[in-house]
């Protein structure tokens, strides 16, 4: 694992990736800090981080697109399979390397609240609480990005899908509240999601029966529940998305709430997507 970690980190820093990412990262925080803290004069560094989290939509695809897609394209994944290291070690090593790369610029950022404190009445615990939330958010989004990179061979494709996933993640609660808060809207949205999940299962396992079975059972259950009592579906979809959205959890940190359930949630997201990545890589051996 340390071998993969060091190797990945070296590749990141010998190419432009780490520097471009660092530049974007620092620039985003700097711009929002200029606006919220220096220009408008809020005494909350959290707002600057909340604003900067928007830039992750572009940054996450930049840093994760190469990570596994390129291995497949250059056929170096065969080397990783034949080395005496497990797929889990490979994936965790890669994750830690991108995580490290994304945390390094934040070390510089962590000095900002201390500097600001000298010129105003800044409450440091919430500032660093939000900082912690920002790091967790980055880690969760990175694990999603790594998973997306593992399902394709092409870097641009990985970046495109990843960007779409990030945008969806960012806006989904707002969008769902506008369009799908009625019972019927939620019902249809759930069915669509179930079909998409079934397609994903089929893509990952290559097993039609399993995918159709799972999708079928879920859809029948949804239809049955809707017929039995459609009131249940009132506002259901936005509520589910709110629970699922990684950004919503991060905003809790920004609001000054340090809740351990959120930490557990972020860690679950990371573990879940890294697990999916391992499965996606293992699947290639069982095609």
């Amino acid at each position: 694992m340390t071998a993969v970690f060091r190797h990945e980190l070296r590749m990141m820093f010998s190419s432009l990736t780490a520097y471009v990412y660092g530049m974007f990262s620092l620039l985003a925080v700097a711009i929002y800090m200029m606006y919220y803290n220096l220009s408008v004069g809020y005494a909350n560094f959290e707002y600057a981080l909340a604003g900067a989290s928007f830039a992750l939509l572009i940054m996450i695809p930049i840093i994760t697109m190469r990570i596994i897609a390129e291995e497949k394209k250059q056929k170096t994944d065969q080397l990783l399979y034949s080395l005496p290291i497990s797929t889990t070690q490979v994936v965790v090593g890669k994750f830690l390397a991108v995580f490290m790369t994304s945390v390094i610029p934040l070390v510089i950022v962590s000095v900002y609240p201390i500097i600001l404190k000298n010129y105003g009445n800044l409450y440091l615990p919430t500032a660093f609480g939000a900082m912690f939330g920002y790091i967790m958010l980055t880690a969760a989004l990175l694990s999603i990005g790594i998973f997306i990179s593992s399902i394709t061979e092409s870097q641009p494709m990985a970046a495109g899908i990843c960007f779409a996933a990030m945008v969806l993640n960012y806006y989904m609660v707002t969008l769902a509240e506008y369009a799908l808060s009625s019972a019927y809207g939620s019902f249809v949205a759930l069915l669509v999601i179930e079909v998409l999940l079934a397609l994903l299962v089929r893509h990952m396992t290559g097993n039609d029966l399993l995918a159709e079975g799972l999708g079928g059972v879920a859809m029948v259950a949804t239809v049955a529940a809707y017929i039995y009592n459609s009131d249940w579906f009132e506002g259901l979809f936005p509520a589910i998305l709110e629970k699922l959205s990684v950004y919503e959890r991060f905003y809790e940190f920004v609001d000054g709430v340090f809740d351990y359930t959120h930490v557990v949630y972020f860690i679950s997201v990371i573990v879940f997507f890294l697990f999916l990545t391992v499965q996606s890589l293992e699947k290639r051996r069982y095609n």
């Binding site: 070296r10 590749m11 010998s14 190419s15 250059q74 056929k75 170096t76 994944d77 065969q78 080397l79 034949s82």
Partner: peptide
């Protein structure tokens, strides 16, 4: 393997 698994940037 048939195609040498090399990291070209190294």
């Amino acid at each position: 393997p048939e195609q040498p698994p090399l990291y070209l940037e190294e």
